[in-house]
């Protein structure tokens, strides 16, 4: 679809606006499109086609069918669970934090401080983040040790384990919450003070204002950003790999092992695995793009 548009659009445009400079205008964006083809579109399309081929290159649906074996399904499922948990958690906590920063009535210096920190924290992902949480909540981490020392409370005796579903979710929140704050703050800015005053004059309580005025305006941003957070953690691997090595069976780690050593013993099944991931992230990101366009229109 993308390829179709990019081939058609320049000639029609050039023909309409600048017939004399047709070749010039077209050539100006050629490097970009060649780059996009070489490093985005063709590699991805090639994988997707590979997902529908057998080892000899014949068309088959077997790989797609083989995705539904328990070990692969469970990897997808754990990834989806962690992504949902960290996206919803990040969205809720991020919303309150953004609310506090933007319209919470806190001292003026707090907002820029939060925003700068969020810029840093949303980029502080991957292996260093895993190290940070191991040093904090690992078996000899600071918080673990202090809780035992002062409260005689061992979080590991409650069944908590950093190298598990909740541990990974808690770690992912470290970059999910800041991302939510960064994206949501402009949307909260768009809530006009007059609306709140008008609803107060009409006798609405704070809850009624949020229920009937603010949330209906904000929901595309809220849902859209949650979808973005979902895709963000679904495709993440470095944090999980740094935290758990290859012990946690999430889809990115399975794919990593497959690329490294063909653990599925079927190259094309690996391509189908990637195809499934693209499908999931494309759906959630597509939802985000659609909803954010919608909320931008509403704000105007």
């Amino acid at each position: 679809m993308v390829q179709g548009t990019q081939v058609e659009a320049p000639p029609t445009l050039a023909a309409r606006l600048m017939p004399a400079q047709f070749s010039w205008a077209w050539l100006g964006v050629m490097p970009f499109f060649i780059f996009a083809l070489m490093f985005l579109i063709v590699p991805t399309a090639d994988l997707m086609i590979g997902g529908f081929q057998d080892a000899d290159g014949n068309f088959t649906l077997n790989n797609i069918r083989d995705l539904f074996q328990p070990s692969i399904l469970s990897a997808y499922w754990i990834s989806i669970e962690i992504s949902v948990a960290s996206a919803v958690g990040g969205a809720v906590i991020g919303f309150f934090l953004a609310y506090a920063a933007v319209i919470g009535g806190l001292p003026a210096w707090i907002r820029p401080t939060i925003m700068t920190f969020c810029g840093v924290a949303s980029n502080f992902a991957g292996i260093p983040l895993a190290f940070a949480f191991l040093a904090t909540l690992g078996r000899t981490g600071l918080v673990t040790v202090l809780l035992i020392k002062f409260f005689d409370f061992n979080i590991y005796s409650t069944g908590f384990n950093l190298l598990s579903f909740w541990g990974l979710t808690l770690t992912y929140l470290y970059f999910q919450i800041p991302l939510m704050v960064l994206i949501l703050a402009p949307a909260l800015d768009g809530l006009k003070r007059e609306w709140r005053e008008a609803s107060a004059i009409l006798g609405a309580t704070g809850w009624q204002y949020w229920r009937h005025v603010a949330l209906p305006i904000l929901w595309p941003s809220l849902v859209g950003t949650t979808l973005l957070l979902f895709a963000n953690s679904f495709g993440a691997i470095a944090t999980a790999y740094g935290l758990t090595g290859s012990s946690l069976n999430i889809i990115t780690i399975l794919l990593y092992a497959q690329i490294r050593g063909d653990v599925l013993h079927n190259q094309n099944l690996g391509y189908a695995l990637a195809l499934g991931m693209i499908l999931i992230t494309a759906l959630s990101n597509g939802g985000y793009i659609w909803l954010s366009a919608r909320s931008e229109r509403m704000r105007r």
Binding site: F39, L47, Y256, Y271, A274, M277, I278
Partner: peptide, 9 residues
């Protein structure tokens, strides 16, 4: 949209 691990694959 496309995870980095898929691109490099």
């Amino acid at each position: 949209v496309i995870p980095a691990i898929v691109l490099v694959f």
